[in-house]
């Protein structure tokens, strides 16, 4: 599904990604953990080219991102993204937030987009919020709408960048529950998170990043119960 080879990226003289290699299979849930500044967000943002990269290759669903013939907008249609700070469109109702891209990008008729949106809102437990504006939502509700908005494009992959980090603790659960459900339905997911419980329970594979490289990867059991590297051990001792 996603093939990353020797991915490198710098901001000026700051080398943020120093050669990432990873293969993500269809229906796999990959959780990325690591200290602040290790390049997790940058890695995720390279996957849908919100951030351009300097070296290496990313192939998603058969599209080589660096190929000049690749239409990045087409790739992004298949790669949903959920942001730490939701990034809902404040000037539109919840329903319009969800239907906009299917209508403008996928050219769905309004009725079809609205039907899909209501179905997704029901799925994230917010069917009664269709006609409100985002500023009246709680953080947990906003993030669930953001997930529904990404899902409305019927993506093949979903990227999550710390989706619960901006939430009050009592709202983390409702967002993780939606993500768990999504994983169970077989969505291919790449999740950057500090929620180790979620990583252990839902993740098929955990990548530990530090200093712009993947230091260690394995099943949640391998990473959490028997980490091999010093850096992994010291990171886990701080967060667990």
């Amino acid at each position: 599904m996603i093939q990353v080879t020797n991915l490198k990226k710098s901001y000026g003289s700051l080398h943020v990604l120093k050669g990432i290699d990873v293969h993500i299979r269809e229906k796999e849930v990959v959780v990325v953990i690591g200290p602040s500044g290790s390049g997790k967000s940058t890695f995720l943002r390279c996957l849908n080219m919100l951030e351009d990269f300097d070296e290496g290759d990313i192939i998603i669903d058969g599209f080589r991102l660096k190929d000049p013939k690749t239409d990045l907008n087409k790739v992004r249609e298949e790669v949903g993204m959920v942001f730490q700070r939701f990034n809902l469109f404040p000037h539109m109702t919840v329903l319009d937030n969800i239907t906009l891209a299917p209508m403008k990008v996928r050219k769905w008729p309004k009725e079809k987009a609205a039907e899909k949106a209501l179905q997704l809102l029901a799925k994230v437990g917010l069917q009664d919020k269709a006609n409100v504006y985002p500023d009246s939502l709680s953080g947990g509700q906003a993030q669930r709408v953001a997930i529904a908005r990404a899902l409305a494009m019927e993506p093949k992959v979903m990227l999550f960048d710390e989706p619960t980090s901006a939430l009050d603790p009592e709202m983390v659960g409702e967002v993780l529950a939606v993500m768990k459900q999504l994983a169970k339905e077989g969505m291919t997911m790449v999740v950057v998170t500090h929620e180790m419980g979620f990583a252990r329970e839902v993740g098929d594979r955990v990548l530990f990043m530090d200093g712009g490289v993947i230091v260690e990867e394995g099943t949640p059991q391998q990473i959490f119960d028997a980490p091999q590297h010093e850096r992994t051990k010291s990171f886990l001792s701080k967060v667990l």
Binding site: R76, E77, L100
Partner: peptide, 9 residues
């Protein structure tokens, strides 16, 4: 970023 991530030009 949100708009572009949804495939909008």
């Amino acid at each position: 970023e949100a708009a572009r991530s949804l495939g909008m030009t």
